[in-house]
Design a protein around this nucleic acid. Sequence first.
DNA 1: GCAATCCATTGATCTGGGTCAAGGCGGGTC
DNA 2: GACCCGCCTTGACCCAGATCAATGGATTGC
Lengths: 248, 248
Amino acid sequence: MGKAIPIVNLRELRQSCADCALNQLCLPASIGGADLDRLDQLVKQRLPLERGDILFREGTKQPALFVVRSGSLKTFVTLPEGDVQILGFHIAGELVGLDGLSGDGHRCTAEALERSSLCEVPFDSLTEVAAKVPGLQHQLFRVMSREFGREMQHPVMMGRKHAMSRLAIFLRSLSERLEGIGHDPHLLTLSMTRQELANYLGLVIETVSRLFSRMQSQGVLEVDRRSVRIVDPVALAALAEKADADEA
Amino acid sequence: MGKAIPIVNLRELRQSCADCALNQLCLPASIGGADLDRLDQLVKQRLPLERGDILFREGTKQPALFVVRSGSLKTFVTLPEGDVQILGFHIAGELVGLDGLSGDGHRCTAEALERSSLCEVPFDSLTEVAAKVPGLQHQLFRVMSREFGREMQHPVMMGRKHAMSRLAIFLRSLSERLEGIGHDPHLLTLSMTRQELANYLGLVIETVSRLFSRMQSQGVLEVDRRSVRIVDPVALAALAEKADADEA
DNA sequence: GCAATCCATTGATCTGGGTCAAGGCGGGTC
DNA sequence: GACCCGCCTTGACCCAGATCAATGGATTGC
């Protein structure tokens, strides 16, 4: 047994949708047989990305849809003045790139937060096949709409006037999503820096750092660098929902 | 010539997509002939809504897609504690209800801000026809993705740490959208209350009020209750982009 | 081992916007 | 006309979080 050198798992690289553990979260859900084969042929397995690698950039023509198989990414837009706004973090089983179907290319940039592997489906062939496979079209609408629902959470969180609520909402959401892919919902390993998290939450890095410290001293979390253990989920929920004064 | 009693325009109520002034902004764009007729049969013209009328509620099964023909609406979610977060305002030519395709019903509530008329397309029949008309499917993906792009603006705006930038961004966006439907982009008639606007921007009503006053005294706007004239668009743009300190 | 770098934490101070409170104005009703 | 009521504005005050600044680990490179 040598060192833990990360090796590309070749079996994983050439695997069909039918065998994929993420099957139910992904496009192929609820289609099968010949249709699944047809979809399978569109899906390209990509070599893993490393932290900082760009999956696609704002404005890219030839847009594609991606499914995260392992690892995680962030999506963000760059503002005219040069600063960025992070729109979301994407973990295994989640889709990235749905903003690209408009015909004007992708509207945001996607970048890996750690070593990540993905499946890729080019849009033109996807919509082409979707036109022939009603089940796929339906599923495509479903996942787009599901993603819509997820996007809604961001403004809801940003609308909170207390920084503590924002962070608590984020942690709960992440916990829930991890649970959905079979991880321990109380043991989070953050793949983003404090800076990236702060940007996403609409705060500055110092505030995020202080919030983690405060939650730890209150016995809600145990924090060690990027790993966060949720010690008191009830207290965390209370922080997330703590009133916000106005209500109209 | 009597008083200006608002009358339901019957011609408008039973009109085909082909004749509609909003044609290019809407679903029928880029389909024609027999396909357009097929779509036409799905579209129901609804009686106008009055201020406060609910178009659909969170959780409604039997979701549908709506196109605003005139007037305006807001969409919002209700949080467990009872307060709400407004997600967006929708003016003529814009689509409402795209969040409903997930199969779990609508994820937000839509409410009229003023007397508004709409077209309605039930989802089940829409997706059914879309499966047969590739042009429609494509257009449906396009408008969904376009809407995705619009949704992205909300977090970008909420990420701004200065209240003035948030309001300026909102005003510019509204101005642009009004221009798109042939209105004077410098003369805005707000259909939402200050409270609704504040909620959307993640601020309190007093702050919004003070911002309007300040922009007026700076010569950027002329404000009279709900009507806002953009006097100095360049200054407004500068306020919208004013640096926000961090940039990662 | 030591420097350099990146990332995170902590403290001190300042300030933008939230909170509390008091009118103002316009549109409706009787 | 007088009143009311919903919506908006303005002022005074205060606090959560931004800003400024210094320090502390990890990790990487030499």
